[in-house]
Nucleic acid binder design. Structure first.
Lengths: 345, 345
DNA sequence: GTGAAAGCGCTAACAC
DNA sequence: GTGTTAGCGCTTTCAC
């Protein structure tokens, strides 16, 4: 009884139960539960005294107990599946995803569980974690095309949404940027500026975005009756961008413009260009992809194709949350990219 | 009964319970529980048949039920508290923290819940989340010195560890890099190179690391009988680093070396220097702090003070996990930084 | 070594 | 409107 004297702030969770509150407030557990969950059907007077008791006792509901009966946890997982998931945060792109998802779920008091998957054991661990029902669903950011995870999620019937179109059709909702339109924007811009010797630094060709961007690049060049001046593959890292640029400089020295498939790789390319004494954009123009914070870190600031990542991430959360509330047919949402012209072209 | 025929892969979590497994294996729930939790006291024959039933039925334990009785969840929170928590991932520093923590908890099958705190509501939300016991503890990365969160965590008696020394003494374990030693390394290096007109771009002075680095900078300069050539405050962002560098160039044009309190700010400074036609390191030498991936993104690659962030993050997880298993006296661990000499000095 | 039984704290019918 | 009651699926004494 003297628990009432204990200030709420000092209360260790789990000490005070619904039952305790009910006893003190002189009502039943059900009534307290109704008040806690904001159900309308409680007389103002009772509600008042329950609220008082709750405050006085520092009552905090036990999530495990609640979730045991409601079969929902109030949290979702954000899984990043990549061979080098540990390096993933070096690309500000992922920070934007985390941020977008966080902002979207916050008003609903949904928590985010972060899972980095970079090998077989960690994949199994994630799968079993999901099956144990510790989260209500999962947003999967999977970068390589042969990742078995999307298919496994579909089979496991875990509510899931993907941050990209799956390589093969899967009964899963996904969100994507119109890669093709984005690349067209970049190429058209370069062509309009009068460039004719256009090369590209591609993303890894075992990732769908890497592949799609390269295909679109070639398609658009052909559309303009141009052939590619050069092509070097990177893996979306800065170092690989630098290496690819060096290759290009060597193999196709007369290139006058380069479409680089990510801003981070473009940053690597910029450094190589500086060292080689090539001025940007006078000697060589550069267009990136993403419009992450890295685009502004380039010198000169990078012209790039903007993906509305935050909005896409929010949409991802949206789709998942809907899916969780009531199972529905998989849906997809395509976002349009935008060309951001800065000083590198 | 024909559940046995259902392939494990198709099993939706929650369908099969301990009880079901027990019935099929012809044992009691207690025995199944023992097998699942790897208790030794089970006859090999029974264990065998239980395992068979589990596999056949695709049984997955229900975490909520388990956690209701064990009062532990198998997950911890990583909370980032900052006015601009959303921007936090633009600094690769935080990626390293996430990565270090992830790697450390993975072998123990502990999950990571990410919480970004950037305003009053989100702070209250985190606090109540922690009190509800949905995680067993929290690692707090708090950047500003007047953050009430550390004290609140201590009062709430939530197992917690801090990624930096708290401004005022608190009964909480923490991990930190020896800021002073790191700055000394940087200053001594510059002095040894013959620089005498040394300025600094500081971190925000409402953050402890920002303050400590500035204080150490001045202390070490004095030790060498030097006075600072200039001082401009940034907020650890690239943009602020650029602005601060511009200020310095204007107010103290004869500066021949600058200690910049973070790599990201140094990146901003580099750009400004290029534009101003100052060569690095011939006209002006630059030393950063952190050794994040940004240091290599600089042109020239940045000499910087390396914080062993991954190791620190792992230690943080370690301390928290120990704390959770058995409450102990708060401990602190100090890590030694290291000077990484590259081409900017 | 194994099983029976008692809850963990909560929600949701269902009566009143 | 409000209380009573019956579990949710699991772990864990405590007998056997």
């Amino acid at each position: 009884m003297d628990k009432i004297l204990v200030p709420a702030d000092d209360t260790v969770h789990g000490t005070v139960t619904l039952e305790d509150v009910a006893r003190v407030a002189g009502v039943s557990r059900a009534t307290v539960s109704r008040v806690v969950n904001g159900k309308a059907t409680v007389a103002p007077a009772l509600r008042k005294s329950v609220e008082k008791a709750i405050a006085a006792m520092g009552y905090v509901p036990n999530l495990a107990a609640r979730s045991l009966v409601t079969r929902s946890t109030g949290s979702i997982a954000l899984a990043v599946s990549d061979m080098s998931a540990g390096q993933i945060f070096f690309d500000p792109f992922f920070g934007r995803v985390v941020n977008g998802v966080t902002q979207a779920v916050r008003p609903r008091s949904v928590q985010l569980v972060l899972a980095l998957v970079d090998d077989e054991p960690s994949r199994r661990q994630l799968l079993s974690f999901l099956r144990q029902g510790h989260v209500d669903g999962v947003i999967l950011v999977s970068t390589h095309a042969d990742d078995p995870l999307p298919a496994e999620l579909a089979r496991a019937k875990v509510p899931a949404v993907l941050a990209a179109r799956p390589p093969e059709p899967l009964p899963l909702s996904f969100v994507e940027v119109d890669q093709r339109a984005g690349v067209f924007l970049a190429v058209d811009h370069l062509v309009a500026l009068g460039h004719t010797r256009i090369a590209t630094v591609t993303g890894p060709q075992d990732s769908s975005s890497g592949r799609e961007r390269l295909a679109a690049f070639r398609e658009r060049l052909a559309h303009h009756d141009l052939s590619e001046s050069g092509c070097a593959e990177g893996d979306f890292t800065q170092v690989s961008g630098a290496a690819a640029m060096r290759t290009l400089l060597e193999r196709a020295p007369d290139t006058d413009a380069v479409f680089v498939a990510s801003d981070l790789m473009a940053l690597g390319a910029v450094t190589v260009l500086h060292r080689a004494g090539r001025r940007i954009p006078q000697d060589l123009a550069l267009v990136g992809f993403d419009d992450s914070s890295i685009a502004l870190a380039c010198d000169p600031p990078l012209t790039t194709v903007r993906q509305p990542v935050e909005a896409m991430a929010a949409q991802l959360a949206e789709l998942l949350l809907e899916q969780i509330i009531s199972p529905q047919y998989p849906q997809s949402r395509i976002f349009q990219p935008e060309l951001i012209v800065r000083d590198s072209t």
